[in-house]
Amino acid sequence: MSATMSPAPAISARDLAKSFTVGKVSTRVLEGLSVELAGGELTLLSGPSGCGKSTLLAILSGLERPDRGSVAALGEPVWELNRKELQRFRLHHIGFVFQGFNLFPALNSVEQVELPLSYLDLGAAETRRRAEAALEEVGLGHRRKLRPAELSGGEKQRVAIARALAKRPQLLFADEPTSALDSVSGQTVIDILHRAARQHGTMVLCASHDPRLIAHADRVLRMEDGRVLADEHTLHPAAAGEPAA
């Protein structure tokens, strides 16, 4: 599959606002933020910690409800879905990679990848085939029988990426995927994410303050104080969405 340009953006968010209350102190994290994200692109969300990038990621991916605003993902009004529908939507369309790899200590690599697939009712053979293909894709086919304790940090993150990719999601969210890794492993991980965007046309949104990633992103959104300060297309200036903030 080659990189495609979708006529409609994969994600379109309008006028997002979110604040958190701790005790009596209310903190505004997002202020009327709008953004569109295209499929086939790796977008980097960068900025200092506390600037709201993780919150934006959570709202766009259907994990955290905004106080105001709307999110359309693949044409679905995400925050108008009920909990069950949202869960189904995430199951079928969304993959996640977190900073902590969150692998089950008891399972080997191929089982880690099969586990979320098993909820798709694909049948045992297809589940196994997809899981092994995903592990091959991240270069860990030879490590598929090993448990997390026998893998390095970079390999664990690659298993976590394989777990996210095996569902063939159109939307992939990654939160600080490289910050716990050394530079070589970090490089490998970002390459894999980039390749996923190119080869499968996946929209990849990656929140990170790791400056090494900027060179690998198709587009960089620089955030500060709950707003997008700059929107730069780097290698492939062919994004569908226009900056709105």
Partner: peptide, 11 residues
């Protein structure tokens, strides 16, 4: 965290 990840992925 592992359960939460599974839930994020749609379980």
């Amino acid at each position: 965290s592992e359960y939460a990840t599974l839930n994020a992925l749609g379980a």
